[in-house]
């Protein structure tokens, strides 16, 4: 039985951590894009960085990709210092930025081949890798078409493929699904889950609690350049109340009776609204969900609809800070913001 995980190594980082950020500051004039951010991503896990527009998510990702230099603080990725070892660091990372970074005039294949060559693959390996990733991201048929003819989802997938050419140990995904329709969003989620299953460490930024919940092991919530909460997804969910189950009764008159039955089985937090005909139950774990459905079903209540609702970013902020996120555009609906 050995335990060596927490011994700091010679690079001043803790083994087992793929990303370590301490006190990173980046100001643009009077805008404090990052104002002392600390975070850690453990090797092989997914960290969700959740925050509204303008929180500093993109700035953080750009610092960690060596695209901009922080004003203060330290950051290590794969043990390499962003400031002092940018070249080694670049071999460690893959970045899918918030805005598509494929060459629109080139075909999907040419885009990937180019990056393979720039990553020092031989011509043959670069070709093979491009073909492999096109296949994997269902782009084989569109491989020869210029990327400007691709749909938003295809571009995103090409972008993801491009960031994976070099088999990076750490992947950054900056709002990977903002602006995508729900179907494409699910495709991207599947892909991210697959990368994680294959061992990638992922730092993912998002404005959606739902996305964070789907993909992340741990969450760091940031607002105006500062970390306002972090911890496991379950912990944070418990704090903000997790999801809410909404049951639509066929006969709204039965709603109080339904709530009473649940109360008898220990579920005391149900609320009813006879106006909307809805019974709302905050759910903290899957077991509870099963219990509620079971109880209502067994008692023969007529149910015409069931829905679960994940708290919005606004509700998360409300729960954490006691006040809503103060950006005008804090909780955008999916598919609202254009990608490019």
């Amino acid at each position: 039985m050995t335990r060596i995980a927490t011994a700091p190594n010679d690079r001043g980082t803790t083994a087992g951590n793929a990303v370590e950020v301490r006190g990173i500051v980046k100001h643009y004039g009077s805008t404090k894009a990052l104002d002392g951010v600390d975070l850690t991503v453990r090797e092989g896990t997914v960290l969700g960085v959740l925050g509204p527009n303008g929180a500093g998510k993109t700035t953080l990702v750009r610092v960690l990709s060596t695209l901009i230099k922080p004003d203060a603080g330290t950051a290590f990725v794969g043990g390499y210092d962003v400031l002092r070892q940018p070249k080694q660091l670049r071999r460690t990372i893959g970045l899918t930025g918030q805005y598509a970074s494929v060459d629109e005039l080139l075909s999907g294949y040419e885009n990937l081949y180019l990056i393979g060559r720039l990553l020092d693959l031989s011509s043959r390996d670069a070709k093979a890798r491009a073909a492999e990733l096109l296949e994997r991201f269902s782009l084989t048929e569109a491989a020869k078409r210029p990327a400007k003819t691709y749909s938003g989802g295809m571009r995103r997938r090409l972008d993801l493929a491009a960031s994976m050419i070099g088999r990076p140990r750490v992947l950054y995904l900056d709002e990977p699904t903002t602006g995508l329709d729900p179907r494409t969003r699910n495709e991207v989620w599947d892909e991210v889950q697959r990368m994680v299953a294959e061992g990638s460490t992922v730092l993912l930024t998002t404005q959606y609690m739902e996305e964070a919940e789907q993909l992340a092991d741990e969450l760091t919530v940031i607002d105006r350049g500062r970390v306002i909460a972090n911890g496991g997804v379950a912990e944070l969910k418990a704090k903000v109340g997790g999801q809410t189950l909404q049951v639509r009764a066929a006969h709204p008159a039965e709603l109080p009776e339904m709530a009473r039955c649940l109360h008898d089985r220990g579920i005391t937090s149900a609320t009813v609204s006879t106006d909307t005909g809805l019974l709302a139950v905050p759910i903290t774990d899957d077991e509870q969900l099963t219990t509620v459905i079971g109880v209502l079903g067994n008692r023969g209540f007529a149910i015409v609809g069931i829905d679960t609702k994940v708290p919005s970013l606004d509700e998360v902020f409300l729960a954490i800070t006691g006040k809503p996120a103060d950006t005008a555009d804090a909780a955008p609906s999916l598919a609202k913001e254009p990608v490019a």
Partner: peptide
């Protein structure tokens, strides 16, 4: 103007 340059700049070239 496009993100292409960002991509190049994150590569070890």
């Amino acid at each position: 103007q496009t993100g292409v340059m960002d991509r190049f700049r994150t590569l070890p070239i």
